[in-house]
């Protein structure tokens, strides 16, 4: 079982703290939602956890090894990362984009063999894009593109997944479809850390919630433990009524 363990990470951009003293761990079979307002430091925390940025202090370990000592290939085989901005430079086919998920396994586009081809087709089937695999990505809708990126992330068959706002700008149906895909990945033994802005969606799908504000983690725990009216007021500065996992947002404070 692979575990990502982040211990006391602090991260600065020049003198401004982006993340302060953040700790959490991500295990297989667990779906964690990372919540917090814009600028809370969520993306910076993810990048630091992946070893993509230099931290001021603290460390992130993957299966006991410091992530900054791992080669990019080794890290990529263990954690799949779906960043927030997902530009596609060329109008490739869907199949080629998903095949890039096999990069760390040495796959070459256009010459997929054996397990690489299987993994790519399995991921495309799971995301329901197998039937249109030869379409070019510049002809796709936002919902279709989101599924292509998910398939790309799943194709690596890494034990862990970190996804930064995978459902941003999607309509409700596609939000549910993408979260269903991530939930199924976790139920099949994966571990996922997902940044979300839809609190109800997070409460519905996640096992754990991490609440972040002003570069600090303020709380973490199950939705039942941590989703309270006072927390929404503190973290998001919104007034809301909570009944179980149902949230009724009344307005900004």
């Amino acid at each position: 079982m692979t575990e990502l363990k982040v211990e006391n990470i602090t991260l600065h951009a020049e003198d401004t703290p982006l993340v302060q003293n953040a700790s959490f761990s991500l295990c297989s079979g667990e779906l964690i939602a990372l919540l917090g307002p814009n600028g809370a430091g969520k993306t910076s925390l993810l990048r630091a956890a992946l070893g993509l940025v230099k931290t001021t202090s603290g460390k992130s370990t993957l299966g006991g090894t410091d992530v900054t000592t791992l080669s990019p290939i080794t890290r990529a085989r263990r954690i799949s990362y779906l960043p927030q901005s997902r530009p596609l430079a060329w109008p490739n086919t869907i199949r080629d984009v998903v095949a890039l998920g096999r990069f760390s396994h040495g796959a070459t586009l256009g010459k997929l063999k054996g397990i690489d081809a299987e993994a790519v087709e399995e991921a495309m089937a799971a995301c329901d894009i197998l039937h249109m695999q030869m379409r070019k990505t510049d002809t796709l809708s936002g919902g279709e593109l989101a599924r292509v990126h998910c398939a790309r992330a799943f194709a690596a068959q890494a034990p862990l997944l970190i996804a930064d706002e995978p459902v941003a700008a999607l309509d409700p149906r596609h939000q549910f479809r993408v979260m269903d895909l991530i939930r199924r990945y976790v139920d099949n033994g994966g571990g996922a850390l997902v940044v979300l802005h839809d609190i109800a969606l997070a409460a519905r799908y996640a096992d754990q919630l991490i609440w972040m504000k002003d570069s600090k983690i303020h709380a973490q725990g199950t939705p039942a433990q941590t989703l309270t009216e006072s927390r929404l007021r503190d973290i998001y500065r919104i007034k809301a009524k909570i009944d179980g996992l149902n949230i009724q947002i009344e307005g900004a404070l």
Partner: peptide, 16 residues
Amino acid sequence: SALTLGEEAASGIGLN
């Protein structure tokens, strides 16, 4: 090929 996804995702999939 990896850079098709942009720099951040490219390093995410294992590009140095």
